[in-house]
Design a protein around this nucleic acid. Structure first.
Lengths: 339, 339
DNA sequence: CTGAAAGCGCTTACAG
DNA sequence: CTGAAAGCGCTTACAG
C-alpha cells in the first residue's frame, strides 16, 4: 500500500501552487485561465500518480457528501428493494451513493433516522412517507435540501412527488374484467385515509358506474393476516353472487388467495382474482394471477431525475413537480374469458 | 433555521479552550482530568444549545466515516434485501450506516463499486463474493479495513465469514423425506464449483448413503429459466421412479414447480418437492412447499457482531472467524407422509 | 487541571 | 496567467 498522494504532492513535484492543481483537477482550467501546457502537465502527473481528490476532505470543505438518504417502511419489501436497486444504479452513475433505513412503522424511530440523515449531511432525501411523519417531512421540505416523495401522496406536503396513477389502475382492471365477461366484481380494500388507497377505490367505483355494474366493496380493518383471511372469507360467503374480486394491495391478495383456497373455490372458474401490485408469487401461482403492476424502474428513474435536477440547480426552484406514472395490467389466467 | 453551533461557540461562551470542550464532549473528561464542575458546565451548555459535533469534520479529521459498504449481486433479491434490512438495524444502533450496491454479475462494475467504497473511506465491508472478484476481495482483506464475507465461501480467501451449514441442510432434508416414506429422492442442482453448492450436494449424497438409498443427481447448466424448466422436465421423465426431489436453490425450485405443473404431476401425490432456500412464494403455493430456510436475522446479526468487534479492536487480530449457522427445515404439505 | 496551536486535504476569494 | 493564504470543525500531541 503506497501512501495516498495529495494535492500538495502534485503541486510540489511540479513546483506550482495547490490552487492551480485544484483548478485543473476540477475542470476549471479554462475558467481560471490556466495555460494549456501547464494544464496538460498537471493532468499527466495526476494520471501517472493516480491522484484522486480525497472525498472526505472535499465533503468537509464543500458541505456536499454526495450521499442521498432513502427512507421507507421496510427495505426488504419487494417493492422497496426493487426501487432501491434501480435508484442505486442511477445514483452510482451520477456519483451519488444511497444510505437507507427502514422505519418499520415506528414513528419515534423514523424521527431518529431522519435526524441521522441530517447529521450526516445527506445531499437529498427520497422518502415513502411513513405514517405520522407528516410534520417532520413537511419541515424537511422547507429546508434547503431537496426531497422527493414517492409511493404515498399527501396533499398537505408541497414537494416533488413520483407516484402512480392508482385511479386508472383499478379503472382499467374493472374494464378488463367486464371485457372478459365478469359482471359481479367485488373490491376488497383496507379502511384507511391513505390517498393511494382512496384513489384505487374511486377508480373502481367510477369504472363500475361507467360500465353500469353494481358495486361490492369490502373495507377490511388492518390486522394480522389470519384476521384478514377470515374477513375476506366472510365477505365471499356473504356476497354469493361475486364472480370476480380485485384486491387493493399485495397483502390483501395474499389473504384473498388463502380465503379462496380455504373455501375450496377454483380460480377462475368459481371466481376470478385480480391483484393491485404485482409480485413474483403471482406469476408462479397456480393459476398465475392477473395484476396491476407498478413500473419499478420508471419510478426509480423519475425519482432520481427529479432529485438530480434539484441537486444541480443552485437556485431553489419554487415550482413543484408531480410525476404520475401509468400502471401496467399484466393479464394472466386468473381472469380468463368467462363464458 | 438557526445556525449550527460549533465547538468554538461553546468554548467562547464559557471562556475556555476548544480542547477542553472536545475532551468533555468525547467523554474523555476523566482521562484528561478535567474538573468535575467544569465538565458539568460544559455538558449543560452543550445540552442547552443542542450542540452536536459535526460528523463531516470529525470524519475528515479521524478518517472514520462510520459507513459500511455492502456489496451483493442484487439488493432486490429477497435473501439480500432481508439481510440488508437486519444489517441496517444493527448498524444504526451502533452509529453506523450502510451504503450498498448491486454488482449484477458484472465484474467490471463490481470492481468499480469496490473502488467507490474505498474512495469514500468506508470503515468496513460486508460482501457476498461476486464471481470473478476473488483477487480484488483478497487484496481488500490484506488492507487494514475489516471485511466480513457471507453467503459464499471461498477457501482461498482468509477472512471472517458468516455462512450456513449447507451440508447439514440437505442431509436433514433427505432424512426428513425418508422418514415420510419417500425412497427415490432426486437432487437437482447446478453445475458449478461454488462451495456452497458442492456442500449441498455432498450433504445429499452422504445422507443417501447413510440411509441406504440410491442417488439420483441432475446437474443443470445455468441458463434462462425456460431452459432450466425444460431440463428439469427431461430429468423427471427420464427418472420415472422418483417420488421426491430436492431443488438446490430458489431458482431451481421455481423451474421445478413449473416443470411439475407442465407434466401434469400432483404434489405431493405424484412427487414430493423440497426447496433449499425458503421464500414467501413457497408458503403461499398450493400446496405449500417444504423448505430449508436460512436464518436471515441470525446471519445479519453475526455479520454485524463480527464487524463491530473488528472495528472496535485497534490491533488487527490475526485470528480468523468463521461462523457456520444451522439451517431450519420448514415442513409443509409438499412432503407429507406417503403411504 | 487547562490552553495554544498544528494539521487533516481541500476550495476559493483575493492579490498581483 | 499564477500563488499565498484563510478557513471548513474537529482532534490531539505538547507545554505549562
Amino acid at each position: 500500500m503506497e501512501k495516498k498522494v495529495s494535492i500538495k504532492d502534485i503541486a510540489k513535484l511540479l513546483g506550482i501552487s495547490i490552487s492551480t492543481v485544484s483548478f485543473v483537477v476540477n475542470g476549471k482550467a479554462k475558467e481560471k485561465r490556466i495555460s494549456e501546457p501547464l494544464t496538460k502537465k498537471v493532468l499527466e502527473l495526476v494520471e501517472e500518480l493516480g491522484y484522486k481528490p480525497d472525498a472526505l476532505a472535499k465533503s468537509f470543505r464543500t458541505g456536499k457528501t454526495n450521499i442521498i438518504g432513502f427512507l421507507v417502511d421496510d427495505i426488504s419489501e419487494p417493492f422497496f428493494s426493487g426501487i432501491a436497486r434501480f435508484i442505486d444504479e442511477k445514483a452510482s452513475q451520477n456519483g451519488y451513493k444511497i444510505i437507507y433505513s427502514s422505519t418499520r412503522n415506528n414513528k419515534t424511530k423514523a424521527q431518529e433516522l431522519l435526524q441521522i440523515f441530517q447529521d450526516r449531511h445527506v445531499d437529498g432525501y427520497i422518502i415513502a412517507l411513513p405514517n405520522g411523519l407528516e410534520d417532520e417531512v413537511k419541515s424537511l421540505t422547507m429546508s434547503r435540501k431537496p426531497v422527493v416523495l414517492f409511493d404515498r401522496y399527501f396533499p398537505d406536503i408541497k414537494a416533488d412527488y413520483v407516484i402512480i396513477n392508482n385511479h386508472e389502475g383499478t379503472f382499467n382492471a374493472v374494464k378488463h374484467l367486464k371485457d372478459k365477461g365478469y359482471r359481479n366484481i367485488g373490491f376488497i380494500t383496507i379502511d384507511t385515509i391513505e390517498q393511494q388507497m382512496l384513489d384505487r377505490l374511486s377508480g373502481y367505483e367510477d369504472a363500475i358506474k361507467s360500465e353500469g355494474l353494481k358495486s361490492h366493496v369490502k373495507k377490511l380493518t388492518y390486522g394480522p393476516s389470519s384476521e384478514l383471511i377470515q374477513d375476506v372469507s366472510a365477505f365471499l360467503k356473504e356476497e354469493k353472487g361475486l364472480d370476480a374480486i380485485i384486491c387493493a394491495t399485495n397483502y390483501i391478495t395474499m389473504a384473498g388467495l388463502r380465503a379462496i383456497q380455504q373455501l375450496g373455490l377454483k380460480i377462475p372458474d368459481d371466481i376470478a382474482l385480480l391483484s393491485f401490485d404485482d409480485f413474483e408469487l403471482l406469476e408462479f401461482s397456480a393459476p398465475p394471477i392477473t395484476a396491476v403492476a407498478q413500473p419499478l424502474e420508471e419510478i426509480a428513474e423519475n425519482i432520481m431525475n427529479l432529485l438530480l435536477k434539484r441537486l444541480n440547480s443552485s437556485k431553489s426552484d419554487e415550482e413543484q413537480f408531480e410525476v404520475v406514472l401509468p400502471t401496467v395490467l399484466n393479464v394472466r389466467s386468473s381472469t380468463v374469458v368467462k363464458l
